[in-house]
Write a protein that binds this DNA or RNA. Structure first.
Length: 935
DNA sequence: AAATTCACG
DNA sequence: GACGTACGTGAATTTC
């Protein structure tokens, strides 16, 4: 060790430490150390990232030298140049500051060099080392996505965006800045940087800067010959602001020639010293990471003293649980052993359950085995229908040895699974419950770790088991891939050898139980018990019912439409080839773009970030008035969409046994509280276009029945009126006025009697825009009016309804302070990026404005759905589908009116009694012999 | 696997 | 006056 001189064949990794820290901090909930409450989340995340980084360093690309580079606290030499440098930066959050020194300790504990120098920024150290590496003929990879470092790229130096796992080379830099790495500083000097408070040249952004630099060759040349610039404003700026621009260049120019008190050779990769590393991790009380690294290093894990539990709010720490040990998992092969598990379950009153099946479609697949867990680390797997190995030529059909008969196992488990005094805990329990019900077992009551996480962490991350386990248990579950294989050679779970199935299946139940033990007490701490208990948990059996029931779809109707579409499309295709004078793929935007914007030489084409021509519908629509080619492409695309996504695909989703289509709702599908529908998605069946709407004619009731559609009228605008307290809007809703016409009248001073459809259309677009967190740009594009005009509309809107502006500002403020926004019913939607900088800030802001409105509407219909089964229990009616603000029912003809009245009452009263709405909710109803008629 | 496009509320 | 934008989804297809 430590003998090699850095040079050719060597590879230096430089990790931007601050980036790691901030990512770790924002990625994790605020963890604290059990024993003393020290905030520790960022250090925990930092350690996990370092650990993952070290583990990933194998193969030919592995570094020979590595260092983590940190910013030194306090001012840098750039503040001497310009005292406002980085003056916009908010100070680090209070609970992050004590963690900075600990991240240095962590780096040293992993035996990775850790460098920072007073008076300099990390970027300068990185620059100096990168230059030294280059001069020595070696490679250097800078692990960071900071654009300020892009000036260093080239000749063996590359960047690696660890977030996106994307390498950035010369081309990548050129893509970002429009110039090569050596001219990046020139562009930055002109464009400035609001984040670092680098002034630059006012009115010049990266695009313009790149243009100028490419034209004149360099910044110096540009400034010397500024008189030659044609645009008067630009010329004046460059001449007048010359000093400011030159200062900006000094600020962004990284120092490659720093004096360092160490050399690259000191950074050679070293193995960690096991006892040092474990000592640090155990001091931090990272139980699971300590244990895992101890196992990997073949060491005894140091014991971490148990501490008195601290009831600090927001505290989430892995429970004091044994580590995951596959040897502790048992395989249950007989009734007597299963009975011992049932006894343990009855003793405790709860059990984590997981099913293994032959596939993913709960309507079709068969049960293969069941896992149970009653105590962290103690789980079993009950194989039931595993097939015998296919080694012998005649095998593959018979059952494997050593399994209980399915009926016998279910007979023993059924009383437990249906016992109202025993909680059955699952991850995505709707799936398992739907399997069990097909075997005559009605699982209840249930708890669901996926839904617990959704209520606790909505908006922070996904809620799949792998995500939750890695995040909250610091344990990566056994992957299913190696067991099942992939692609054509993939097998189903019943073909997996029982010995291989046991650890995988039992672990899932183990993980589920541990997550439950961690999450359940948090509901109260985070004040989301009501959300979970009223909006999540009771919805599971309701959705399971709807999905199992499905909706009848007439295959012949779809099939005929598919044929008609195919014929028309062939005609359009021939016409397009004729116009283009060449055979090309109409379905390829790149080829369509090339014909329009190159061969035909039309203006207005834009390229996507991959450099292909972009041909979205709105661009083609603009061209369609003049060019048949564009019009035909639009025609073709519409039919292609309808055929492939609907008339063709929907037929494949008709269940052969039921003749119906069974969608699957993802209760945690949208961050706002909305659900998602998939396989197939029945929430985006066409309706807006006449041709598309006909697809709904294929959705039909059973003989003697009708389809009913009940939908909330303007629910989001009503909620906005209530939440923002806009009296004018409230009054309009109370009097049953046309809300868009009223808005138009108010804004444009047009009396209602003189309202035109065009004015009303514009007001409607503005009303929707408000819900989405309006911007001049967005409205301008939607209405196809000049941006300035759109901005005038918005200004006027806010003038007339000042409460809206206040509501928006307050919502964003709340999000910034708390990191989440809330619906009227208390659902929290976390807004992780709300304090981000740059364009992401705009996104996060608009999402934060929209979330309480969209989310409250989602909560309202959830409440209606939860109450609906009981409310219509006396009727022969079935609830089939939910489409965000619409519920679809199927009911015999002679019960239509009664069902409408009952369902409407439930829906209109759904907010009560939890919330009294100032604006009443109104539900419109329709009925018919298919969905098109009913809607 | 990512990008592009387009269907819905 | 510059940046890049409507909010939330799922699916099919092409392109890498």
């Amino acid at each position: 060790m430590g003998q090699t001189q850095f040079g050719k064949g060597c590879h230096l990794h430089l990790i931007d430490g601050s980036a790691f820290i901030f990512r770790a901090y924002h990625a994790l909930p605020p963890l604290t150390r059990k024993s003393d409450g020290l905030p520790i989340g960022a250090v925990s995340g930092f350690c996990n990232m370092l650990h993952r980084y070290v583990e990933g360093n194998t193969g030919p690309d592995a570094p020979t030298h590595v260092a983590v580079i940190f910013d030194h606290s306090g001012k840098s030499f750039r503040n001497d140049l310009y005292d406002l440098y980085k003056a916009n930066r908010p100070p680090a959050p209070e609970d992050l500051r004590p963690q900075f020194p600990l991240t240095r300790d962590a780096t040293r504990a992993f035996n990775i060099a850790c460098k920072e120098i007073e008076g300099f920024e990390a970027d300068d150290i990185i620059a100096t080392l990168a230059c030294q590496a280059r001069e020595a003929g070696g490679r250097c990879t800078i692990i960071s996505s900071d654009k300020d470092l892009m000036q260093l790229v080239g000749d063996g130096v590359e960047m690696l965006d660890a977030m996106k796992n994307k390498r950035i080379d010369r081309d990548g830099v050129h893509e970002k800045f429009g110039v090569g790495p050596e001219r990046v500083v020139d562009v930055q000097a002109l464009a400035g940087d609001s984040v670092d408070n680098v002034p630059g040249a006012p009115g010049i952004g990266i695009k313009t800067a790149a243009l100028l630099i490419n034209e004149f060759g360099s910044l110096e040349e540009l400034l010397d010959r500024a008189e030659e610039i044609k645009q008067p404003k630009r010329r004046q700026t460059l001449i007048e602001k010359r000093d400011q621009i030159e200062l900006s260049k000094q600020l962004v120019q990284l120092d490659c020639g720093m004096e360092l008190d160490f050399t690259i050779d000191d950074l050679e990769v070293r193995d960690p010293e096991p006892d040092v590393l474990l000592e640090f991790l155990s001091q931090m009380e990272f139980r699971t990471l300590t244990k895992r690294l101890a196992d990997q290093l073949g060491m005894e894990a140091p014991t971490i003293p148990e501490a008195a539990p601290q009831a600090a709010a927001g505290e989430v720490e892995a429970p004091e649980a044994p580590s995951f040990d596959q040897a502790e998992y048992t395989c249950v092969r007989d009734a007597a052993t299963l009975q011992t598990w049932v006894d343990q379950i009855r003793e405790r009153g709860w059990v984590a359950v997981d099913t293994e099946t032959t596939g993913l479609d709960e309507m079709v697949v068969d049960l293969v085995g069941i896992s149970l867990c009653v105590e962290a680390g103690k789980a079993c797997y009950i194989p039931l229908t595993h097939k015998a190995g296919s080694d012998d030529l005649f095998g593959g059909e018979g059952l494997a040895e050593g399994q209980m008969p399915l009926d016998e196992a279910l007979a023993i488990l059924k009383p437990v699974l249906e016992d109202p005094a025993i909680i059955k805990i699952g991850q995505n329990m709707k799936y398992d419950a739907k399997i069990f019900i097909r075997y005559g077992v009605d699982v209840a009551p249930i708890d669901d770790t996926m839904l617990l996480s959704y209520a606790l962490h909505g908006g922070l991350h996904g809620h799949g088991m792998d995500t939750l386990s890695e995040r909250y248990l610091d344990h990566k579950p056994i992957p299913i891939k190696p067991l099942l294989g992939s692609g054509k050679s993939a097998i189903t779970f019943d073909k997996v050898a029982i010995d291989d199935a046991v650890p995988y299946a039992a672990e899932d139940a183990d993980i589920t139980l541990r997550l439950w033990q961690l999450f359940k007490p948090q509901l109260h701490v985070q004040k989301v018990t009501t959300v979970y208990e009223t909006l999540e948990r009771p919805l599971v059996p309701v959705l399971a019912q709807m999905e199992r029931h499905g909706i009848k779809v007439d295959r012949d109707v779809l099939s005929r439409m598919s044929n008609a579409f195919a014929q028309k499309m062939a005609g359009f295709e021939a016409e397009l080839h004729e116009i283009a004078g060449t055979e090309f793929n109409v379905q390829s935007p790149a080829q369509v773009g090339q014909i329009l914007f190159e061969d035909m030489g039309l203006e207005g084409g834009k390229k996507t970030k991959t450099g292909q021509w972009s041909t979205p519908a709105d661009v083609l629509e603009d061209l369609a008035t003049e060019h048949d080619f564009a019009a035909r492409v639009l025609d073709y695309r519409q039919l292609q969409k309808l055929k492939s996504t609907y008339t063709d695909a929907l037929q494949d989703h008709i269940n052969p046994d039921t003749g119906r289509v069974h969608t699957s709702y993802v209760q945690t599908g949208a961050n706002t509280g909305r659900m998602a529908s998939s396989d197939p998605n029945l929430q985006n069946i066409p309706v807006r276009s006449e041709e598309g709407r006909r697809i709904r004619e294929a959705f039909v009731p059973e003989e003697g029945n009708v389809l009913l559609s009940l939908d909330y009228s303007q629910i989001e605008l009503r909620i906005l009126a209530h939440m923002a307290g806009i009296d004018a809007l409230k009054q309009a809703f109370a009097e049953g006025h046309d809300i868009h016409a009223m808005t138009a009248s108010e804004m444009f001073d047009v009396p209602m009697s003189e309202m035109t459809p065009e004015i009303r259309r514009q007001a409607k677009a503005i009303n929707f825009g408000v819900i989405y967190g309006i911007s001049g740009f967005g409205l301008a594009r939607n209405l196809r009016i000049p941006r300035k005009e759109a901005q005038n509309f918005i200004d006027r809107y806010f003038e007339r309804f000042p409460g809206i502006r206040t509501y928006m500002d307050q919502t964003v403020e709340f999000a910034k302070e708390h990191g989440y926004v809330q619906t009227l019913f208390g659902r929290k939607i976390h807004t992780a990026e709300i304090n981000a900088k740059g364009p992401r800030a705009g996104f996060a802001k608009r999402a934060a404005i929209n979330a309480p409105i969209q989310g409250t509407a989602a909560d309202v219909i959830r409440r209606a759905m939860v109450r609906m089964p009981d409310a219509i229990a006396h009727l022969p009616a079935r609830m089939l589908l939910q489409v965000h603000d619409e519920l679809l029912f199927e009911v015999p003809k002679d019960h239509v009116e009664e069902t409408i009245a009952t369902a409407r009452k439930v829906m209109e009263g759904a907010a009560d009694p939890a919330v009294h709405m100032d604006v009443k909710l109104v539900v419109d109803a329709g009925q018919g012999q298919n969905w098109a008629e009913a809607h």
